[in-house]
């Protein structure tokens, strides 16, 4: 079969449901993520209410580093939506530039998290030391994995966007990124402020 028969990835741009299929797939992905993160965070909240003594463990989390990472993620969400804005104006190069800024935010977030975890693990606060830390490393770890995966996907899309190719993907990856940001918006008060 010649490639000219299917010159574009139809599945990502058609819109039988009123939403382009690629974007609809991301909405479904986010819907599944709500259950994943909702399950972890819901379990944490219930345990935290049932175990007031966990407050003494939560005192060890670093509020300043958590706040710094919140600023980083909120700023990376801004650059993601600015990339979408540029893509809407068919400016692929500008969209790619903003996506790289978002990737820089993702990298900064992960570096800060690594520093934070190293410090905590060296202090004996490991995933097996207390149930609080089991939840802490699980919730923040799953979130960190999403940041890493988002950064990698964004790099692939940024390379294409710079060539003006498949600009509709810029919005799709942006939606995913904003969801990752929202998860952190709730993780921050749960793990760093409620002490």
């Amino acid at each position: 079969m010649s490639s000219s028969a299917f010159p574009r990835p139809i599945a990502t741009t058609r819109s039988a449901t009123g939403i382009s299929t690629g974007k609809l797939a991301v909405w479904w992905l986010i819907a599944s993520e709500i259950v994943i993160f909702g399950g972890v965070l819901g379990s944490y909240i219930m345990h935290r209410i049932g175990h007031p003594e966990w407050a003494s463990q939560a005192e060890h989390t670093n509020t300043w580093l958590g706040a710094f990472n919140t600023i980083v993620l909120l700023s990376s969400s801004l650059s993601a939506v600015l990339a979408h804005n540029a893509a809407e104006m068919k400016d692929g190069k500008k969209a790619a530039k903003f996506l790289w800024f978002t990737i820089l935010g993702a990298a900064t977030f992960l570096v800060v998290k690594s520093f934070e975890w190293t410090h905590e693990i060296n202090a004996g606060l490991t995933i097996t030391s207390h149930t609080f830390w089991s939840f802490y490393y699980t919730a923040a770890g799953i979130h960190g994995l999403h940041v890493l995966v988002g950064g990698i996907i964004m790099a692939v899309i940024a390379v294409d966007a710079a060539k003006g190719k498949d600009l509709q993907r810029v919005e799709a990856v942006g939606l995913y990124w904003h969801f990752v940001d929202i998860v952190w918006i709730f993780l921050f008060p749960l793990l760093y402020i409620s002490k």
């Binding site: 909120l74 969400s77 801004l78 993601a80 939506v81 942006g174 939606l175 904003h178 969801f179 940001d181 929202i182 918006i185 709730f186």
Partner: peptide, 10 residues
């Protein structure tokens, strides 16, 4: 904050 992100960014 979540509402603002959902409404204005998403």
């Amino acid at each position: 904050k979540a509402y603002l992100v959902i409404k204005h960014f998403m």
